[in-house]
Amino acid sequence: MQPLKRFTQCGSLTMLFGVFIILFGVSSTALTTFGKTNNQPPPTQGPIIKGRECNTHDDCSAIDRTSCVKDPNDYKLRCLCGDDSPPSNGLCPDVLKGLRHKCNSNNDCEDGMVCQFESNNRTTGVSKFMSSKTKLCLCDNDNGYVEDILHDICSGANQLMLVNIFISVSSLLAPFIYSVLMSMRKIF
């Protein structure tokens, strides 16, 4: 029995060592660079790219898929892409458009927004001096979305996220609750 016991202990240690190697992925670069100093200079940060400043959506007509909206970094009106990023080499990615971006249909806008002309009774955001002749992605007031001026988003989306989380958690717990109820049924 003594040799078998020693073999089992040795085998378990070997197995444990193998698991550690797989989990932590010892690589040859980690072994060769241990103890060396980093002689490479830190990467230089490129210039911060900003969109062109504007006053109206017409100022941005030269750059396709841009709208004159508030820059989230410095709150100046700039020609930005639908995701509020500056155009890269004059091009914007094909993404859903955020709040107050020019649009043609509801399919252009993010969830919780509709593509419509801005009514004259709305005085939030930058609408006071923007043209009402352009369709914009605006918060879907009919479905409970309200413009949050401070964060420049449509509020109400947080409620949808909470509902989705609740549904996900409920679906994960449902089998457990069902099994508990079934076991209690057998007891009584």
Rank of each mutant, 00 (worst) to 15 (best):
Q2D: 01
P3G: 00
K5V: 03
F7K: 13
Q9A: 12
L13Y: 08
T14K: 04
T14Y: 01
M15I: 09
M15L: 14
M15S: 14
F17H: 02
F17Y: 13
I21E: 11
G25Y: 09
T29W: 14
L31E: 03
T32D: 00
T33K: 15
G35R: 12
Q40L: 07
G46P: 03
G46L: 13
K50S: 04
K50M: 11
G51H: 08
N55G: 08
D59W: 10
A62M: 12
D64H: 15
R65F: 12
R65P: 00
P72A: 07
K76S: 08
L77R: 07
L77K: 10
G82Q: 05
D84L: 10
P86T: 07
P87A: 07
S88F: 15
N89P: 01
N89V: 11
L91P: 01
L91C: 02
D94K: 10
L96D: 02
K97N: 07
L99G: 08
R100D: 00
R100H: 07
S105H: 15
S105V: 06
N106C: 00
N107S: 07
D108N: 02
D111L: 09
D111Q: 09
F117N: 00
F117H: 05
E118S: 09
S119E: 01
N121G: 00
R122V: 01
T123N: 05
T124H: 04
S127F: 10
K128N: 14
M130D: 05
L136M: 12
L138E: 04
D140F: 11
E147F: 14
I153N: 00
I153G: 08
I153H: 12
C154A: 06
N158E: 13
V163I: 06
V163P: 08
V163F: 05
N164L: 12
N164M: 07
I165T: 14
L172G: 13
L172T: 12
A174E: 09
A174R: 09
I177A: 06
V180A: 11
V180H: 03
M184W: 13
K186T: 02
K186H: 14
I187N: 05
I187C: 00
